[in-house]
């Protein structure tokens, strides 16, 4: 019931590890069903490679339902492929034509070094969060949840920013490899909510400093990040981060 009839040519980036040079390998693949997800197509390819005694292609993936942010393929020149608002794992082969050549690359950014093949190291994102992407509240210190009403609009807007899955498509899409969309989404979420006010200034300063020290580029407002974001995080967040950062730098008591 599954046998499909699509034939594809895949040009996939292969790289042994972070130190070695990489190159493209070309593979042809038959019997692909349009109902397969893009990653399932890669499973088929890997099974084929194993049967030919070749090492399968390493790629990051986990939940396969578009929420964990692990999958990270740069497909035909676009992070997560041709669809808008969709992660690689939710992309299906019916978005391609029989006979297509598909070029698959890892995210490319100095701050995302390649681990192997299509797998990159995104721990820089974790370090940005560690620098300030939290509310400092120890367990057990919270007051009753309803003692602090939050306007629905603020809560909804904060939620939209909090929807970021940290996949790094924004960095991959950006010609400057800037992490502004990622950083700004977290800064926005917490600056929109009353809980985030106490650390509002220091948060923006520290997160931007960490972002810069990781080697991400500067935002030049091209908008590619938001256009490619699988969760469609808005550019408004970046403007808000600029405001938060500059406002904090000018007014905070840190000399």
């Amino acid at each position: 019931m599954s046998a499909g009839n699509m034939s594809l040519t895949l040009k996939v980036w292969r790289q042994k590890n972070g130190k070695s040079e990489g190159n493209f390998e070309t593979y042809s693949l038959d019997g692909i069903s349009p109902d397969m997800s893009f990653l399932e197509m890669f499973d088929v390819l890997n099974e084929k490679l194993v049967s030919e005694n070749k090492e399968p292609i390493a790629f990051d993936h986990d939940c396969r339902e578009g929420i964990c942010g692990t999958c990270s393929m740069y497909i035909n020149g676009r992070p997560h492929g041709p669809l808008k608002g969709v992660t690689t794992c939710q992309l299906h082969m019916r978005s391609f034509q029989d006979g297509d050549t598909i070029v698959v690359e890892p995210w490319r950014a100095a701050a995302f070094p390649v681990v192997k093949d299509l797998v990159v190291d995104r721990t820089s994102f974790d370090r940005i969060i560690s620098a300030g992407g939290f509310v400092s509240i120890n367990t057990g210190n919270a007051r009753d949840a309803n003692s602090l009403p939050i306007p629905k609009e603020s809560a909804d807007e904060a939620f939209m920013s909090a929807a970021c899955i940290g996949c790094g498509a924004c960095v991959a899409a950006c010609k400057n490899s800037s992490a502004m969309l990622f950083t700004s989404a977290k800064v926005s979420q917490l600056s929109l909510l009353p809980q985030g006010q106490a650390e509002r200034k220091i948060r923006a300063e520290k997160m931007v400093a960490q972002m810069d020290s990781e080697g991400f580029g500067a935002c030049t407002n091209t908008g590619a990040c938001s256009a490619e974001c699988p969760k469609e995080i808005s550019l408004d967040n970046i403007a808000r981060l600029n405001r938060e950062y500059l406002g904090s730098k000018i007014t905070s008591s840190l000399v």
Partner: peptide, 29 residues
């Protein structure tokens, strides 16, 4: 200077294929 820093942030290897969803002028300032 920004263009230089941003180019460096891109890493050593360029994409083989780019299908960027932003305007030409924004990318070529």
């Amino acid at each position: 200077y920004l263009a230089y820093v941003n180019r460096k942030a891109r890493g050593t290897t360029n994409y083989a294929r780019i299908n960027n969803q932003s305007s030409w002028s924004s990318r070529n300032m």
